[in-house]
Design a protein around this nucleic acid. Structure first.
Lengths: 232, 232
DNA sequence: CGGACTTTTGAAGTAATTCAAGGGGAGTGG
DNA sequence: CCACTCCCCTTGAATTACTTCAAAAGTCCG
């Protein structure tokens, strides 16, 4: 019965969308489950690659750390998303670190098993390709933003994206459901927590956002969008 | 005979490496050739996607332009590399613009034909996956650099990469074979031509590089690497 | 209630951009 | 061959955006 549950779940993930049941069953047969607790590390930058996963429950944060210890947030992973893509692209070690934000359930495969699945069922390979293509475009956009925009604009774009990807309607506005410190936002936008704090304080004064300890709620979406788009 | 030439060429590209001859022949049969002149545009950001290509001769530069007209250089494409990956990831329109640096020869496919090739021969899909994975990691690195490093360091890293990817040994050092204006370097590093010019002038004074109109030669590779790595 | 973590804010300092002007090289056309 | 023009590059000076430093206040949790 657990197996049946898995099949349903897999069928809804970005990697296995559209796969016939037989393929899903085969996929499930060579998979393993994994659970980690909030704050635990799923894999660490530089570790040899052992697995590729699909997130079932909970969220992860993928970061990279520079030689001198500065962190950059690469992306957040939600349920149904692939984690550890590097396993399928021939890389030797994980390029980033994945840390659990919540308690996380995953379904995983060895790179070898997954590669066999992709070889036998090109749909899976094509899905993986679509996923990577989308992520590539996402990061291109971020590169463009960080290369061309000023700090306030970058923060605006980042908060808007988070509101879209992890936002929940509340009476006061769109609450971002991720725990999000000033430091976190700084690590997404290439600045420091002080600049983020100043910017957000100013926004709070104008009623554009509400924010407290690791919480952000967007009240005036339109005003924020305007800040993000301003040519100035 | 042209066909035979094509097969040899295709066999050496990143997308078709390892494919048996029968597959290459099939691939070649549904391909078309295209030539464009230096300075011409292969595809433009926002255009509906019509083709995916492999570069045979010549080089391309892929850029993105912001709504307010600022350009960012995404990457350079060399012979054997794929151009127009978006065709295979389900995107509607090209996310960037590809401009020919030299006269360029390409082999191309319609997205439909290429998708059929990938479906029928998962090796091709896997190769495409490896290519995208590598590019994703490349751009992650650049994002990290631009997010954490100061301008001089970013320029150093960028010039080092260019020297590695497009460098030619000469008596004076490693000459970057791409025409490379200050503006170009600025568009790769998220700064402006003035800062690049100042930085490079300083380096020239110290004998680290030689540079002139759209030309850069790295003389003291080690010194440049040191500038790039400095924690300071 | 103590302690750790997060946020805020002023003040000082600095890196980088912007503004402005001029110089130099390559190629073109007379 | 010379002169003209178009790019591209350089460099000072002024300005600004951002970071860094420093200190303090707020918030959550056990």
């Amino acid at each position: 019965m657990d197996q049946h549950l898995d099949l349903d779940i897999l069928a809804r993930t970005e990697l296995f969308r559209g796969a016939p049941e037989a393929v899903l069953r085969e996929t499930q047969a060579v998979s393993f489950r994994k659970r980690i607790h909030a704050g635990d590390v799923l894999y660490r930058q530089g570790d040899p690659i052992t697995s590729i996963y699909v997130v079932i429950v909970g969220r992860l944060c993928v970061t990279q750390t520079t030689p001198d210890g500065q962190r950059v947030i690469i992306r957040y992973l939600n349920p149904s998303e692939m984690a550890g893509y590097a396993a399928i692209t021939g890389t030797e070690s994980y390029p980033g670190t994945a840390t659990a934000i919540d308690d996380v359930h995953l379904i995983g495969w060895t790179p070898k098993a997954f590669r066999k699945l992709m070889t036998d069922h090109s749909l899976i390979a094509m899905n993986a390709l679509a996923v990577l293509g989308t992520r590539y475009q996402d990061i291109q956009l971020r590169l463009r933003e960080i290369a061309t925009e000023k700090v306030e604009q970058r923060i605006a774009h980042t908060v808007l994206r988070l509101a879209e990807q992890a936002g929940r309607r509340t009476s006061r506005g769109i609450e971002i459901t991720l725990p999000l410190s000033r430091q976190d936002i700084a690590e997404m936008t290439g600045t420091n927590l002080h600049s983020v704090s100043r910017t957000m304080s100013a926004w709070e004064t104008e009623g554009i956002v509400l924010s407290g300890r690791r919480r952000v709620t967007v009240c005036k979406l339109h005003a924020l969008a305007q800040l993000a788009e301003q040519t100035s």
